[in-house]
Design a protein around this nucleic acid. Sequence first.
DNA 1: TCACAGCTAA
Length: 759
Amino acid sequence: MSHLFTTSLKVSNLHHLKQLHAQIIHHHLHHHNHWAAQLLGHCTRLHAPPPYTRLIFDSVPHPNVLVFKNILKFYSQLGAHNDVITLFGQMQKNGVRPDVYVYAILVKSVGKAAIELHAHLLKMGYGCDRYVRNSVMDTYAKYGSVEVARRLFDEMCEKTVVDWNSMISGYWNWGYEDEACQLFELMPHRNVITWTAMVTGYSKMKDLKSARRFFDEMPEKSLVSWNAMISGYAQNGFAEEAIGLFHEMVNAGLQPNETTWVAVISSCSSRSDPCLAESLTKMLDEKCIHLNYFVKTALLDMYAKCGSLETARKVFNELGVHKNSVAWNAMISAYTRVGDLTSARELFDTMHDRNVVSWNSMVAGYAQNGQSAMALELFQEMVTTKDSKPDEVTMVSVISACGHLGALKLGNWVVNFISENQMKLSISGYNSLIFMYSKCGSMKDAQKVFQEMAMRDVVSYNALITGLAAHGNGTEAVELMLKMKDEGIEPDRVTYIGVLTACSHAGLLEQGREIFESIKDPEVDHYACMVDLLGRVGKLDEAKTLIERMPMNPHGGVYGSLLNASRIYKRVDLGELAANKLFELEPQNSGNYVLLSNIYASKARWEDVERVRKAMREGGVKKTIGWSFVEYGGKMHKFIVGDRSHRQSDDIYRLLGELRNKMRAFGYVADKSCVLRDVEEEEKEEMVGTHSEKLAIAFALLVSEEKEVIRVVKNLRVCWDCHMVIKMISKLERREIVVRDNNRFHCFSNGLCSCNDYW
DNA sequence: TCACAGCTAA
C-alpha cells in the first residue's frame, strides 16, 4: 500500500487524480474517510468537475469533519453556495460537529443570512477566533453592508494583514475609492495581496492609469498581480495593452496560468482578429495548456467572435454537462451576432439556468436584427415570468425596440418601470431614451430627457439632432450643433449627417452649404446629404455637378437622393440617369424601380411604368415587403401585405372595401396609377398589393375614437397607391394620420401633408 | 500546524 502514498504525492493533474482514485478503489479504501478527504482535497486544488467530486463524496458511508470540510471547500470555491448550505445541514443531521473553519466557509455562502449566523457564532464563543472573525467581516464587506464590516474591523483589537486586506477589498467592492485608499495609507504592513487588491480596485473603477501606477510601484509581484493587471486591461477594452503586458510577463520568465490565458483569449475576442485567434490556438496547442472551464468558455467566445461559429459550437458541445450559463449565453450571442435568431432561440428555450444575461442576449438579438416586436414580446415574457430581473442592458434594448416601432405608450411604460424599480441609467441609457422619443415623434419628451441629463456625450447630441432633423426642425438642429461646439464636444460624422439632413428637410440651403464647407474631410455620406439638400430645394443640376466632382465613388445613397429629387420635381432625365446607376449599384433594391416608375406615373407615361415593372419582374427583383405597426391598447399590432393573421382581419378587409366604395362615390376613380387596386385584384402584380399601411390604417380607423390621431409606423419607403389612399382617407374621414416613412414624420390632415414634397 | 485576504468566461 505504500505506493499509494507516493502516488498521492504527485497528483498534479486530473489524469493523475483519476489514477489514484482507481488505485484506492482497487484496494477497497474508498469508503475510508482519510482517503476520501485526500481525494477531495485534490479535487479542490485541480478544479475537478463537480459531478466527479460529488461521486467521491457520496461513496463515503460516514463522512467525518475532514471529509465535510473538503467537500465544503470545493463547493465554496465553485461559488455553489446552495450546495454548501445543504451539506452543512447534512453535517448537522449526521451529528458531525462543525469546527471554526467549517463556519468560516459557511459564512461566505449564506450571504445576508450571515448576520444571524454571526449572532449564533458569538453565542457559541467562536466570535474571537480570527478566521471566523475575518470570514464574518469579509462576508459583510462583500454581500452585506460595508459599514457593518467597518464596525467589526474597528472593534478588533489586533488586526491581521488579512483583516486589512478584506476591508480594503470590501471598500473597492462597493466602489468606495477614497476609503480604500485611506486604509491602504494607514496600513502598517502591506503585502503583495494588498497591492494587488488596489490594482483590481482601480481596474474595477475603469481607472487603468492608477491601476498601472500601483502595479508598477509594487515591491514584489506574484502571478496573481500580473493576472490582475492583464485582466484589468482586458475587461476595459484595452486589448493591445493586455497582450503587450502578457508578453512582458512571459519575457520576465513567468509561467502564465489558466487565469492569464483567459484574459489573453478574451482580449483576442474583442479584437475579432481571426489571425490572432489562430496563432493563440496554436500556442495553446504547443504548450499543452490544460484547458479548464474558464479557458474553454473564453475560447468558445473567441471562436464565435473571430468568425468560426462551427468551432465555437464544437467547443460548446464538448463542454457537455459542465456547461454553465456563461457558455450558453456566449453561444446565444454568437448566433444573434450573425443574425441566426432561430438557432439562438432554440438554445435559449432549451437552457434551464437562464439568467439576466441570457434574456439580454436574446432581447438584444431580436432588437438588433430588426425584430423589434419580438424583442418587446420577449421582454414582456421576462417581466411576467419573473425569471430574471431586468437590468440597464435589458432596458436599453427594450427602449431601442420601442423607438424602432414608434411604440410611445409602451415606451412610457418602460420609463415608468425604470423609475419604479429604481434602476440607474448611464449616459447611453439616457441616449437611448432620446432616440426612442425622437422615433416615436415626441420631441418634447426627447428634449426633456436631454435637458435633465447631468452629463452628455456626442451621442446624446447626435440623437437629439437626428430627431429634430426627422421632424423638420432644421434651425433647432443647427443651433444645437453650435451649442455642442460651445460645450467643447466636437461634432463627428453622425452629427454632420444629422444637421445636413435637418437643413435638407427644412430647406435651409445656405446654412447647409456653409456646414458642408466646414467639414474637414467630408465622407461619401455627407455628399449624399448635400445632394439631397440641393435636390429638395430644386437645384438638381447643381446636385448633378456636385456628384461629378466628388473625390470618391458615389454610393447608392448619393444617386438615391438624386432620384428622389427627380421624383419631386418630375425630372425624367435625371431620374433615369440616377436610376440606371442604381440598377447597377444595387440591382436587387426594389425601391429604385418603384421611384422611377412613380416618376413616369406622375407624367402619365404608363408604357414606361409598365416597362420598369417588366424589367423588375424579369430581373427577379422582389418588392421588399415590410411590416406596418399600430400601437393600440398597450400592444403593437403588426400588418404585412395580404395579411390575414390579425384577429380582426375580417373587419379590416370589410372596412377597406367600404373605403373603396366611398372613394368611388366621392369621385376618386381607380386609374392606371392603381390607387385602389389590392391584392385580390392584382395577385400577380408585384408593385402593388394590399399594403401593410392600408391594413394598418383600416385597423386604426376601426379601433380609434372619433378625431383621434392615427399613428402608423413604417420605415421603408411606401408605394404610390398607399400614399394616395392615406391622403384620401385623411380627407374623407377628416382624421389626422401620422406616418413615419423613411424615418421621417409625415402628418396628413384634410388630404394635405405637412411636408411639401410628399406625393 | 493549517485554514482567512488579491486574478478567470457572456
